[in-house]
Nucleic acid binder design. Structure first.
Length: 694
RNA sequence: GGGCGGUUGGUUUAAUGGUAAAACGCUGCAUUCACACUGCAGAGAGCGCAGGUUCGAUUCCUGCACCGCCCACCA
């Protein structure tokens, strides 16, 4: 397919990669339906759909290099392999980025209106969606683009409605006033998993609440004095001897001068603060629970913009922060402030906007988790799903044991509309992602793809979306189809920066895969990433393995050149055989290289089966560089001058090279396909569909 | 607070119940015969700390420290 003289040039990844990718796409082999006849047994992996919020990062590159590695090997082994790509509309995150763009231009989504804003969203989706696809193609992944899905596709919306209906008929979906996490900047509720906790150096204020008809008082400790304006009670632990005689009595709430009861509840920790806690049912999750149990009134003193309401009386219109200052100074003046201590504690912020989360009571849709969680736990316990690493199994079970009902509604414009419900009320983006392995294959219709590829074989994901996504896919599929959605859950390493910190835009420590590909070539980047996957839960980012990858590609290229020169391309067509018995009168060097090749095949297979991708690659590296290049290639130089050995040495060179290329193909697909295309082998196919060595 | 992972040459990481391997970097030599993105030779760690098991531990156990990640309603 290439003019041979090209092969005399140094390896040029840029030129080769684009050309080879087109070559693959043209072949149709990414599509399992277009694979040769020998590919029968279905095999399926799904891409974790990237958010349409920006560009791919190094985590995507790693994850999909592994997805592709697995797929390519299975394809070569004769499976009818499908690697299904797609993207996620990313509800809150998606809306947030577009809104931010608008604000940069001095506009906003409110100014645009819902209709126009959604148009913008789709425009964004088109632009960024395509760009993400192209970025993924640069990595060389062999996914079937004809089956590409987006979580807001027409038929995907249908799947979402079908799932919602199903749960509703079961009676598991309900609407109610519950405590939720409210982001005043995104103007929506968010789930517990979307709240991020940051340590904050704050204060612990000790406030005296006078007892009714008594000169005495009870002291409460709080980090949020402003919420006292909405207090409905003081709570103590029933076993706390200090306060036993106060239970049932009344206290006077300072500033508001309202009488509130003193109640007893197990949720109160005797050891913390004074052992007495102020109860604000409308603005704290625990307090809400206590309020329910004791039938306390709920005073909503903070509104959805993060401002104090009329209910707060003295602070109406102030921000939470302003109100806090006002309340503290008022308490100080009126002698209700006993003391204040420095206190560092965790403050929940919106993972998207970093705005402090206001817990508040709101009318929201929920999905009851009781039966669904039980399903997921059962699947894990019965080992219907294999967890890699194995420790994930217990983590999975433990999370589902304590999971609360899922707040599935969001007050956004971008997303799946909640059936019945009006504008501006959409489903949590994860409600649709949870259906990914089903909806992408056509569910709820009984499509051919669904029967062929579902349940899928393996799912790869980052730790951070283990519950958010993986957990929810498990119970969704089990409930809706009665089957686990995948046989294996592989939680891959997180790529941290060289100092071991999480990569983030704000820290400025992110790595751009495209820059790396430009610098080293895609094969070298894949090599470098996979090299570092050795079974740990983290990878400390280093570019060194990528440099090694680049050098390795160069070595591969030059060794291949040598072999081809010896064989005398392009005239002869060697029928090469995998059977070593076809080689006779072997020299010591011949025997060693053939033995080492066999050992390496075993080693690579064993390690890939164990998900030890880095070790598999290292075995290949050592074999090719040291056994083949340093030893055998050198030995072959003498053998090639001996007329009695010449022919067989040529065949062995070609045999070992061809098999090395096959083994390396899932790791470094571009260069191996390119070199393979030059090998003078009878009846060969493209490397992507060649037989995996045995 | 709970869980998980890590702590090995300058750096990033392997392996292993009997005194440690690779990549990158470093030093010296070689070389226009596939490859300087090369070859050969070499320096460099006794494997976080403290106990224990063992004939023997970097490897197993216990505790501690530090780093990181995840989860959690401590006001």
């Amino acid at each position: 397919m290439l003019a041979m003289d090209k092969f005399d040039q140094p390896y040029n990844p840029k030129e080769t990669e684009d050309k080879i990718y087109q070559f693959w796409e043209k072949s149709g082999y990414f599509n399992p339906d277009k694979l040769p006849k020998r590919h029968k047994k279905p095999f399926c992996v799904m891409m974790a759909p990237p958010n349409i919020t920006g560009h791919i990062h190094v985590g995507h590159a790693l994850e999909n290099a592994l997805n592709d590695l697995i797929t390519r090997r299975k394809r070569m082994q004769g499976y009818k392999a499908l690697f299904l790509p797609g993207k996620d509309h990313a509800g809150i995150a998606g809306q947030y980025v577009v809104d931010r763009e608008l604000r940069k231009q001095g506009s906003s989504r409110f100014e645009l209106g819902r209709e126009k804003f959604l148009e913008k969203m789709w425009q964004w989706m088109k632009e960024y969606g395509d760009s993400i696809d192209n970025e993924l193609k640069k990595i060389g992944i062999s996914c079937d683009w004809s089956r590409k899905r987006f979580t807001m596709d027409e038929d995907y919306q249908e799947a979402v409605r079908a799932a919602f209906d199903y749960y509703q008929k079961k009676g598991w979906i309900y609407k109610g006033k519950r405590m939720i996490n409210w982001c005043s900047s995104c103007q929506t509720s968010i789930s517990d998993l979307e709240v991020e906790y940051l340590e904050e150096k704050g204060k612990l204020w000790f406030i005296k609440y006078p007892l009714s008809n008594s000169p005495e008082f009870i002291t409460v400790a709080t980090t949020r004095p402003e919420t006292m304006l909405g207090d409905a009670a003081v709570a103590v632990n029933p076993k706390d001897e200090r306060y036993k005689n106060l239970i049932g009595k009344k206290a006077i709430l300072p500033i508001q001068n309202r009488e509130i009861p003193i109640v007893a509840d197990d949720l109160v920790d005797k050891e913390f603060g004074t052992g007495a806690v102020k109860v604000t049912p409308a603005h704290d999750a625990v307090d809400f629970e206590i309020g329910q149990k004791h039938n306390l009134p709920s005073y909503e003193i903070i509104d959805k913009r993060g401002k104090m309401t009329r209910e707060s009386k003295v602070c109406e219109g102030l921000t939470v922060k302003e109100c806090r200052e006002k309340v503290v100074s008022a308490l100080r003046e009126q002698n209700f402030l006993l003391k204040e201590e420095d206190y560092s504690h965790n403050v929940g912020v919106c993972e998207r906007s970093k705005t402090v989360i206001e817990p508040m009571v709101s009318d929201q849709w929920f999905l009851s988790m009781k039966d669904l969680a039980a399903q997921a736990i059962r699947a894990a316990r019965k080992n219907q799903i294999k967890f890699i690493p194995a420790s994930r199994k217990q983590i999975f079970i433990n999370w589902f044991k304590q999971v609360k009902d899922w707040n599935i509604s969001r007050q956004l414009w971008w997303g799946h509309k909640v059936p019945v419900e009006g504008e501006g009320e959409v489903l949590d983006t994860w409600f649709s992602s949870a259906l990914w392995p089903l909806a992408t294959l056509g569910w709820p219709k009984k499509t051919r793809d669904l029967t062929t590829f579902f349940p899928t074989d393996i799912i790869l994901s980052a730790r951070e979306i283990f519950f958010l996504w993986i957990g929810r896919m498990v119970f969704s599929a089990m409930e809706l189809t009665g089957k686990v959605p995948f046989k294996v859950i592989y939680t891959h390493a997180t790529v941290l920066d060289s100092k071991g910190r999480k990569m983030s835009k704000s820290l400025g420590n992110t790595v751009d895969p495209l820059t790396l590909i430009d610098k080293y070539g895609a094969d070298a980047v894949r090599f470098g990433l996979v090299w570092q996957v050795t079974g740990h839960q983290d990878v400390h980012w280093s570019e060194d393995p990528l440099i090694a990858g680049k050098k390795f590609c160069n070595k591969l290229w030059n060794a291949s050149r040598f072999v081809l020169q010896q064989i005398g391309i392009p005239n002869s067509q060697f029928p090469i055989s995998n059977k070593i018995s076809n080689f006779k009168k072997l020299t010591k060097a011949d025997k060693i290289i053939l033995r080492e090749l066999r050992k390496t095949i075993k080693e690579v297979d064993k390690n890939i089966e164990k998900f030890q991708f880095g070790q598999a690659l290292q075995a290949l590296y050592d074999f090719f560089w040291h056994e083949f290049c340093d030893v055998y290639l050198e030995a072959s130089k003498a053998q090639l001058t001996d007329p009695k050995r010449k022919e067989q040495t040529r065949r062995i060179l070609l045999h070992v090279l061809a098999n090395s290329l096959k083994l390396l193909h899932p790791f470094t697909p571009f260069i191996t396909e390119e070199i393979y295309s030059h090998l003078p082998i009878k009846d060969k196919t493209m490397l992507i569909v060649e037989n995996w060595p045995k």
